[in-house]
Each structure stands twice: as C-alpha cells, then as structure tokens.
Design a binder for these strands. Structure first.
Lengths: 244, 244
DNA sequence: TGGAACATATTTGTAGAACAATCAAATGGA
DNA sequence: TCCATTTGATTGTTCTACAAATATGTTCCA
C-alpha cells in the first residue's frame, strides 16, 4: 500500500535509481556533481544499459539534468528555482495534509502515526546523519498513505525537495522541521481539515523564509560554506565518483 | 523558455517517448493497451535499449505501468484513481492560473495569449481530432510560460491528465473546456489573482462533475461505449501494435 | 608567458547478439 | 471438463562494437 505500482518492480535499473537517491540523501552525491555512466556501472556492478535506464527515470523525476554527450549532473537549483520548487511544494503539501486529515481513521492509522512520532523523537535524540532523512521520509509516506491519494503518492516525491534537502542542509532547518511535523501529526489526528491544510502550508512557508534569509546573507558576504551551492564545475573531471 | 532543460535533449529514446505520447494523444494507443518492446523498436526503427529507456521515462511520468516480465501497459484509471488525479490537478491548476495572473506582463505575454485564443477558436470551428489536443496543450504551455515557474512547468505535464483525456473523451467535455479556457485567459489578462485561482479550480471541478456523472451512469446501465474504460485485457496478446 | 590550433583520449549514443528467467498459451492426458 | 506439461514468446541483462561528440593535453607561434 505504501508502494505505488510503478515503484514495486525490482530490476537492475531500479537498484541504480535507488542507489543514486540514497547517495544523494546521505550526502555522498551533491547537486552539480557529474555522474559518468561507466563509473556508475562499475560502482553498482551493472551494465551500462541499466545505468542509462536509471538516468532516464532520474531525469523524469527532476533529480538529474541530461544534455547530449555530457555526463548527467545532479540538479542544482539557483535561488529563483529554489523558490519555485517551494511554491509547488506548498500547495502539494497542503493537499497532502488536508487529505490525510480528511481520511484519518484511528483504528487503521493510529499506530502508523505513533510509530512515525517515535521515529521523529529518535531522530531528534540520536544525531546520526541518515537518521533524520529516514524519519522525514517515513513521515511523508505515512501522511500520503493515510490520505490514500495514489496520484499524490506518485507525484509528491517527484517535487524537487530532494535537491533542496541536499543543497540547504542545516541544523536550524532540521529542528524546525521536527517541530512542524509534530504539529501536523497532531492536527491530522484531530481530523481538523482546515488546520491541517494550514499547518502544511505554514511548514513550507517557514522553510522558505529560512532559505531565503540564508540566500540573502550569502549574497552580501561572498563566503561559501562547505555544503551549500556547489558550482556546476565543482568536479572538473567526469569521473567524479571515487571507488572505495 | 517553453522547454524545461531535461526535455530539450534529442536522443533516440526521446523520439520513442514523444511517439508514444503522441499516439496516446491521437487515440492510436488507449489506456490498458500493452506495449511490447520489440514492436515499439521496429515501429520507431530503433534498438530495444532506446525503447527501454523511453519506458523508464514514461513510467516515471505515470503514463505506463511496469511490472516484471510483463509488457508495459498504458495506465488505466479506475473511478477512484480518476478522482484522485483530479484532486491533484485542481491544486496544481489553481497554482498555475494564479501564478500566470501574478506574472502576466502585457508587452511580453500579450500576443502569446491572443495566439492561444486564436488557436482555441480554430479548434472550435474545425472539427479535426488532433486539433483540439494541440490547442489544449498550447493553452497550458502558454499559461505555464507566463507564470515562469520552472518546477511547475516540469511537474504539471506529469499529472495523469493525459490518461484522463484519453480515457474520457467526449464532445461535452471538449466544449466545456473551451469555454473555461477562455475564461481563464480573460482573468489572467486582467491580472486578477483571486479570480484566476478560482477559475482554475472551477474548471477542474467542472470536469470532475461531468466525469463523475458519466461514471455513475455507466455503473447503472452496464453499456460500454466504444472509447471508454477499456479493460486491461483488451488486447489479448502482447503484440498490440500493428504495423502499417 | 599567453593563448591558439591541433591531436589524442575519454565519454556518450546507438544497435545488436546472446542467453537466462519468466510468463502465457497450447497441447495432451486423465 | 479440468489439470499438468510443454512450447513459444517476451522480458531482463550484459557484452561488444563503432560512430559522434566532448574533454584533455601538447605543440607551436607571437
């Protein structure tokens, strides 16, 4: 039920797809980075075809950019496009939270929410890199699952939030997210449609404000921190993935 | 400007992708139909690899369903999922119309709207099958172009409306769409944000009501018209595309 | 030294062969 | 008629091969 039909197939290209997504989530790949197909093939132990299929999937999902005779690059958002992504995320999140509140059914969905809550608490206590990402994903999957809208389940993960997560990763954002997620869980459990929609919208709005502030700060003082906006030519050669 | 970055590449798999989309739009392929990869390869004069890449792209876009060791099938919406698609379409369309109204700039966008208007009028007069589909696509592209939100330009065509167009094609719907599109163009040109958002929402709402009515009608009297809900096993064999 | 022009190496784009794994239909027996 | 087996067709996957384009490196000239 959590897996949309198209996702459940377990093929080789799927493995590459997931691998790249996971690498992006865990910070092993960063926006702007090039992905040479032979490198990926050896890295995941598959043929070039499988890699190319995965690239098509990733491109359709907005994770990478393709251009002829160039290595695919992980999408890098300029400030304007970052805001555009957030505008889309706002209405989609609002729909997700409202639908979840509308369809929330304690007997079926109760422990799903409590387990999500637990996972968020765990992520708050323990300070492990991948932990928070997993909790966040779990939260949204639970939300979408409760809502039961299959088209939303399909499209929501296609919003460019993955890129934003990778590009603007700060502790400040993480803390705010945790708080907002708890609020959302609360209003969904109360089945308060209006409050749920508002909470979803407000969350994205908060994230937007923080990112905007950071972008403006960054524009004035030209200091580039370790993890934020990486230039497209960050990796000068196409073979950008080092083998272990 | 009309083309998102990922779309502009012109490769062989891209040709297959476009070909399938066009076949769907023109009614040469219908929801539920199977797409054997060797058939597609010969039909488009390309290798199997290219077809498989295109299938990954189409699957990511929600145009086809993939399952292991089965020919891909064009997505077929049951009544519930049809409504779910429309729920997503509603908020996305509302965002599109509002953003267009917000960013509308007569000097730059004026003749884009008039040309769209002309095309819609043309489609209304002449009764050619592909004509209306082209006009509709032109309308939405213009809307998204005016709004300028690149993420929305990328995600909007990924909504399952293509399938709905193919599955619920009636003259009644066409007429209503034409009228609604003109209304939307009007309020966008007036830069009335609230009215634009409302018009977008109302349009999808109207479409939903009509489809719902048809589905209920269909449920009572079990008559299946020529073009509507085709069963998944419509094509009994996998080689469903006949060569000319 | 700086840069332009060329030559070479690397990478992508594409087709096709080959084979295993799996599914769907046809066949044949009870 | 119904079930089991076989057969045929289709997909999943890797490899090879080569053309086309890009990236890199080197040479040469001002």
């Amino acid at each position: 039920m959590l897996k949309p039909s198209g996702q459940s197939v377990s093929t080789t290209s799927r493995r590459v797809f997931r691998g790249v997504m996971k690498d992006l989530e865990d910070g092993r790949m960063v926006p702007g980075q090039r992905l040479a197909e032979t490198d990926l093939a050896t890295r995941f132990g598959v043929g070039r075809n499988a890699v190319r299929e995965a690239m098509q999937h990733l491109a359709a999902r907005g994770v990478i950019d393709l251009s002829r005779h160039r290595s695919p690059t992980i999408r890098l958002l300029d400030p304007a496009e970052t805001m555009e992504v957030l505008d889309v995320a706002e209405v989609m999140t609002a729909l997700a939270t409202r639908t979840a509140a509308e369809r929330f059914d304690p007997p079926g969905h109760g422990d799903l929410l409590t387990s999500t809550m637990d996972m968020l608490a765990e992520a708050d206590r323990i300070d492990e890199p991948g932990m928070f990402s997993r909790a966040r994903r779990h939260f949204y999957r639970a939300l979408l699952s409760i809502g039961g809208n299959r088209e939303l389940q399909r499209l929501f993960p296609a919003i460019g939030m993955h890129i934003i997560y990778a590009q603007y990763q700060t502790r400040q954002l993480r803390g705010i997210r945790l708080k907002d997620y708890r609020t959302i869980i609360g209003v969904v459990a109360r089945r308060d449609l209006a409050a749920a929609e508002q909470a979803g919208r407000a969350h994205v709005d908060t994230v937007r404000d923080i990112i905007r502030a950071r972008l403006e700060l960054q524009q004035t003082e030209e200091c580039r921190c370790a993890r934020t906006p990486i230039r497209p030519d960050f990796c000068h050669t196409t073979s950008s993935i080092r083998r272990p």
